[in-house]
Design a protein around this nucleic acid. Structure first.
Lengths: 241, 241
DNA sequence: ACAAAAGTGTTGTTATTACACCCATGC
DNA sequence: GCATGGGTGTAATAACAACACTTTTGT
């Protein structure tokens, strides 16, 4: 119960308060329950869920899911709990993005936001109950966002693209097994550029992170592609504390 | 004046409070005013300043310089101000490292630390008035640190090494002009590995970030090396807000 | 048979590495 | 002259990119 008798103008001079927000990414498959799904044939697209603010400032404006941090939970736990409370999702991957603490982020309160970014698989993305107050948007076609959330999203997209090039986070968009074409599609839709199937295949196999299963994916009118899975990883998650 | 009548045991259940800390790096030249300067002939070494805690918990233990965030300053400004207050230094480079918010970081208070890391040139490093409460330590030979500061330092070193390989932060350890050997020494002492002088030279020149001056550095008993300077950079600093 | 994507081969280009060798200075 | 690092040359290797070509399925 901090400073119970403080009114708004006095609160302006309190030390900054803390909050958590999360930028969640999913690929198009799981975002089918959106209104304007004009998914072009040339590959999947990136989507993220936003929530409508129900109070001032920026009332009715779309914003990143977020909330306060409880006294007995870590930052990551706060992000995870909050995400579940607001969107019913449990992320496959969760990593701290940045702490945003400019003095002019909010018109009245001074709040420092510790922002996480997350990846969810299609199955998980479908769990998000969308409606008037929660909706998926494509990263390329966002509405006006509250606060500096637009900058935050841009930074998160940049980070995702970046990390895609040197790590194996792509697996967090996919199910347990997948074809190399599916894996390639993840890469292509995130970095926004076509990749040579032949070279991509060799790079992935050479990276020694894949296990070839003995199954193939039949049904299409061409040679059935082999299914792969990722090797169990030693340690992927985020940084300590 | 938040919650003025709260005692210690009640404070445990307050929402986390905020603080800023900074890991400052300098190369050996500027750290000569240290006690155990046994700088080996084979290149410079990394140093960082620590301050002695004057209150519980961890009283008398060395810790990262840090402090609270004022209501009207950004996180970066808080780091900069605090660094100046505690060590009289103004960093050449300053970037956010990570927000540490584990629940067990401190025995009593719950505090979230937003940590920055900084680079200072030798001239600036000399401004730090060392004494009983501020001292430079080599990163390879640190004392026991308060809280989780040891983990934080390790992470900062990792980040510095990493960033050294794909960016031009090395310049923040050097003066305006420098020889390629000096630049190489910075790289070598940070990443802890010898580099081929010939190849290093070509890589640096090929990167197209250096300007050749018309001066050389005479005085040594070998061919005088040419002095270079960095091209004025478009934008280097940290991320917004 | 044919279309379409899976999968393999091959070649040219570029980046990296190792190391030989010449250059210019102080002593 | 000679030791010392500055600076250039070069060849072997590895990584990457482009693209031709063969394989296997569904229709």
């Amino acid at each position: 119960m901090p400073a119970p008798m403080a009114n708004v103008s006095e609160r302006r001079f309190d030390p900054p308060s803390l909050a958590i927000s999360t930028v969640v990414f999913a690929l198009s498959a799981g975002a089918g329950n959106s209104a304007d799904d004009e998914s072009t044939a040339d590959g999947a697209t990136l989507w993220l869920p936003l929530v409508r603010r129900i109070r001032e400032p920026y009332r009715n404006t779309w914003a990143l899911p977020g909330g306060p941090i409880a006294w007995n939970e870590s930052l990551e736990a706060a992000a995870r709990r909050n995400l579940h409370e607001t969107t019913d999702m449990t992320p496959n991957y969760l990593e701290q993005l940045y702490a945003f603490g400019g003095t002019d982020r909010s018109p009245d309160l001074r709040v420092v936001s510790i922002v996480y970014w997350a990846l969810v698989r299609p199955v998980e993305a479908d769990k998000a109950v969308t409606g008037d107050n929660v909706r998926w948007f494509r990263t390329g076609n966002l509405p006006e966002l509250a606060f500096d959330h637009r900058d935050i999203v841009d930074y998160a997209v940049w980070r995702l693209r970046n990390k895609m090039e040197y790590s194996r986070i792509a697996q967090n968009f996919l199910g347990d097994t997948f074809t190399l074409a599916q894996l390639r599609e993840v890469y292509e839709s995130v970095i926004g550029r076509r990749l040579d199937p032949a070279n991509f295949r060799r790079q992935m196999l050479a990276s020694n992170t894949l296990i070839e299963t003995d199954q193939v994916l039949a049904g299409a009118r061409h040679r059935p592609p082999r299914l792969y899975r990722y090797k169990p990883e030693l340690a992927q998650g985020s940084t300590a504390s």
